[in-house]
């Protein structure tokens, strides 16, 4: 067990000298969470758009469900994905358990509802403004959806960043389906949990530092997106 002060200075040293282990972990974290964000947007944005522009019986229930799924506990998602991917599970033959792919799947499931629910709100507001004009132009549903997605691009980027932020900071799902295997499935959050329990505070702190910087970076990106949207009168 190190002293806190010693741990902090070691941590800073690790970051500054570009420690290989540290950067491998950070790189995997980014790869997993960025991929999950990509797939979550692929699923969530069209879904959000479709719900935003459609009126059908049971729509209220769908909205409640979408909003409820936003708060899915990561460990529960991890458990469900584990049950499907484990050797005896229905998708066990794929051999994905304890691989980065499993982690990407889990995080995608975790944040797709966030992307869908938040984009639904954004797109529904926009559609309220455009609907009459679009009906006058007799646009097809596909044309309406793609026009809404494009015109809401700044807000939707913010939405996807929110999804990424949740994915990269999440530990419960990736630790269950990834297993925190060194050099294979160890990401920032799982490493922090492990190193802290082992007493290696320097690495944990260094990773925590990087995670904080990423969180700040995401927020800064959101801010600058907002500002640039305003500058272009696209808000």
């Amino acid at each position: 067990m190190q002293g806190i002060g010693e741990a902090v200075s070691l941590a800073i040293q690790l970051v500054i000298t570009g420690n290989a282990d540290l950067f491998e972990i950070v790189a995997l974290s980014l790869r997993v969470s960025l991929s999950a964000t990509f797939f979550a947007c692929l699923i969530g944005l069209p879904l959000g758009a479709l719900v935003a522009i459609s009126r059908f019986p049971g729509r209220g229930a769908v909205l409640v469900l979408m909003n409820a799924l936003m708060g899915l506990p990561p460990v529960v998602v991890g458990l469900l994905v584990y049950l499907h991917l484990s050797r005896s599970g229905p998708l066990g033959f794929l051999g994905l358990l304890y691989t980065p792919s499993a982690m990407i799947i889990a995080q995608t499931i975790l944040i797709a509802p966030i992307v869908a629910a938040l984009s639904r709100q954004v797109l529904e507001d926009l559609h309220g403004e455009y609907a009459e004009q679009f009906r006058s132009l007799c646009l097809t549903r596909g044309q309406t959806v793609s026009a809404l997605l494009w015109d809401a691009r700044y807000s939707l980027l913010t939405v996807s960043l929110a999804g990424f932020g949740r994915a990269v900071a999440e530990v419960g799902a990736v630790i269950i389906v990834g297993g925190n295997i060194d050099h294979l499935t160890r990401v920032m959050t799982t490493a922090i949990a492990l190193e802290t329990s082992k007493g290696d505070l320097a690495l944990a702190l260094a990773l925590g530092l990087v995670l904080l910087v990423i969180a700040l970076g995401v927020n800064a990106a959101v801010q600058s997106l907002r500002m640039s949207a305003r500058r272009h009168a696209y808000v």
């Binding site: 403004e129 455009y130 009459e132 004009q133 006058s136 026009a147 494009w150 015109d151 009168a233 696209y234 808000v235």
Partner: peptide
């Protein structure tokens, strides 16, 4: 129809 309050796309 040209609406009384024109709705322009954010482009």
């Amino acid at each position: 129809l040209v609406f009384q309050k024109p709705v322009l796309l954010r482009r």
